[in-house]
Design a protein around this nucleic acid. Structure first.
Lengths: 109, 109
DNA sequence: CTAATCTATCGTAATAATACGATTGTAAAA
DNA sequence: TTTTACAATCGTATTATTACGATAGATTAG
């Protein structure tokens, strides 16, 4: 099968899973870290920083863009990528909610 | 290829990606949500709650266990699953760190 | 216009993930 | 001991992911 049964879960569960999945690769973590820390966000710079080929980096950028965590705008001959603040905030809230929901009391096992 | 180049990234990036990846499926989000909210954590109850077969749920539990987010202890004929507080805290801190690192100032694009 | 540069996409190969039924392994109950 | 119940694992089919080289598209430079 190999096909996630998205329709069997809530919209919120799917959304959080989608965000988590997008962060589920070290290259994409590295991209996000770069974009949150550095001022520069030219695609070429990201490619230079990562130990992966240009096409592979482009693929990772596309995935992050597809979940909305980043956005890219054409800037002359190159593309400027940066964090999409709106979605970033939503992700932050959702993850915080997940982590906050644990009753820090004693576990049952 | 299809093989993540783990060795090219930092330990921290790989660890965070590993945690995110484990949360990157709605069934596993549902499991985590159940374990953080409910007191009961018997494997059978989780299976009943999820719209997936017993073997598939077992596989998801195994993945969550392999990254350390949950732990399971045998309790008579059944198994009691719960959040692993130590790893949970590490994950919480790591995600918070990622989300906190964004300079909320104006973006470049 | 042409050449150079930058990035996205295509094609493809290798590997991982998702899901289920069937089976196996444990532990309590009869 | 034998049955019953619960959960893990095996086998397998389908789909997704990761990665790269090659190519295409778009934009600036000459």
């Amino acid at each position: 099968m190999g096909l996630t049964k998205t329709n069997k879960f809530t919209k919120e569960q799917n959304e959080l899973a989608r965000l988590a999945k997008a962060l589920g690769h070290p290259a994409r973590i590295a991209i996000i870290e770069h974009l949150t820390k550095a001022q520069s966000c030219i695609c070429g710079d990201i490619v230079k920083e990562l130990p992966l080929s240009q096409s592979t980096v482009s693929q990772h950028l596309k995935e992050l863009k597809s979940v909305g965590l980043i956005k890219g705008t054409i800037e002359g001959p190159s593309v400027c990528y940066c964090i999409n603040n709106e979605v970033w905030l939503v992700a932050k809230v959702q993850f915080e909610g997940l982590f906050a929901s644990l009753k820090s009391a004693e576990n049952c096992c």
